[in-house]
């Protein structure tokens, strides 16, 4: 479905990052980088999101929250892990409260490198995620979305 790719909604959650990647995610939305030109919209509601942007490693306290957010998102969904912390815990991997990367809790589709990840690479990650979203949607079959009849459209 081509329209899927044209307006993916983003959900952002800070697992346990230092904030650096998070403000870069926000910077992506603002005039210089402007991911909204790809039809993306940052939303606070997991039930309306297609792409899950997650920064930072996993700790004991937020493990359940990450699972909840992921479970609440409708299919198809794509997870983008931003920054080195989301991959392995990064500079904090030896901290006592860090369990490891995001992949230990939920399946991750795209990894964005960097500490902190630069907006350019975050945009690159989101664009890659759009392709995966499309592929996942195609794999689910075209029957999922009923055509709008005239009666419904009126």
């Amino acid at each position: 479905m081509a329209f899927f790719k044209k307006s993916p909604w983003l959900l952002h959650y800070d697992a346990s990052s230092c904030n650096g990647c998070d403000i870069e995610v926000l910077a992506c939305l603002t005039p210089l980088y402007d991911v909204e030109r790809f039809g993306c919209l940052l939303t606070g509601d997991p039930k309306q999101s297609d792409i899950f942007l997650i920064t930072g490693g996993v700790n004991h306290r937020n493990i359940q929250i990450i699972k909840n957010l992921y479970d609440q998102m409708p299919e198809p969904k794509v997870v983008v892990a931003i920054g080195i912390c989301a991959y392995s815990g990064g500079v904090f991997s030896e901290c006592y409260n860090i369990e490891g990367g995001v992949a230990s809790v939920i399946p991750v589709d795209v990894y964005v490198p960097g500490c902190a990840a630069k907006p350019e690479s975050i945009i690159d990650g989101v664009v890659k995620a759009l392709g995966i979203l499309e592929a996942k949607q195609a794999a689910r079959g075209k029957k999922q979305i009923p055509a709008v009849t005239e009666a419904q459209g009126a």
């Binding site: 904030n19 490693g57 929250i65 500079v91 904090f92 030896e94 901290c95 006592y96 409260n97």
Partner: peptide, 28 residues
């Protein structure tokens, strides 16, 4: 929710290298 326990990391990192961990207390 984002407690990492980085203060205890001083026991594992050289005091000169720890500057880079200290910088990552907060990204702002």
């Amino acid at each position: 929710y984002i407690h990492r326990g980085l203060e205890l990391l001083v026991e594992k990192r050289d005091y000169q290298d720890y500057v880079f961990v200290a910088e990552r207390i907060c990204g702002i």
